[in-house]
């Protein structure tokens, strides 16, 4: 079966749902598009809640904004579009 080529996204995981939602709100408010997804097992740290998916090109800015807001990223990785 042929289809569109898979895209790769960056994924950021957080220790708590509260932090993940705070990060989502912050990044969206500051113009970084993110999508909450089930935390992929592949990014480790035993996450079983939600993670944020974003464009790889936005990761550096997201990291800066999150660090400034003291919202700690607990795990990170890549995921192919699903």
């Amino acid at each position: 079966m042929s289809g569109r080529p898979l895209r790769t996204f960056a994924v950021l995981g957080f220790a708590t749902t509260h932090t993940a939602l705070a990060a989502e709100q912050l990044l969206r408010d500051l113009g970084v598009p993110v999508t909450p997804i089930p935390a992929p097992a592949s990014i480790g740290n035993g996450l079983c809640g939600i993670a944020l998916r974003l464009e790889p090109g936005d990761v550096e800015r997201a990291d800066t904004l999150l660090e400034r807001a003291e919202l700690r990223v607990a795990a990170r990785g890549d995921i192919e579009d699903v």
């Binding site: 995981g13 957080f14 220790a15 708590t16 749902t17 509260h18 932090t19 993940a20 740290n45 035993g46 996450l47 079983c48 809640g49 607990a74 795990a75």
Partner: peptide
């Protein structure tokens, strides 16, 4: 259970509010 990070750990997460 808290649904957040560190599910494999036998201990509660240190992060609040979880």
């Amino acid at each position: 259970g808290t649904g957040g990070g560190g599910s494999e750990s036998p201990d509660m997460p240190i992060e609040r509010p979880d």
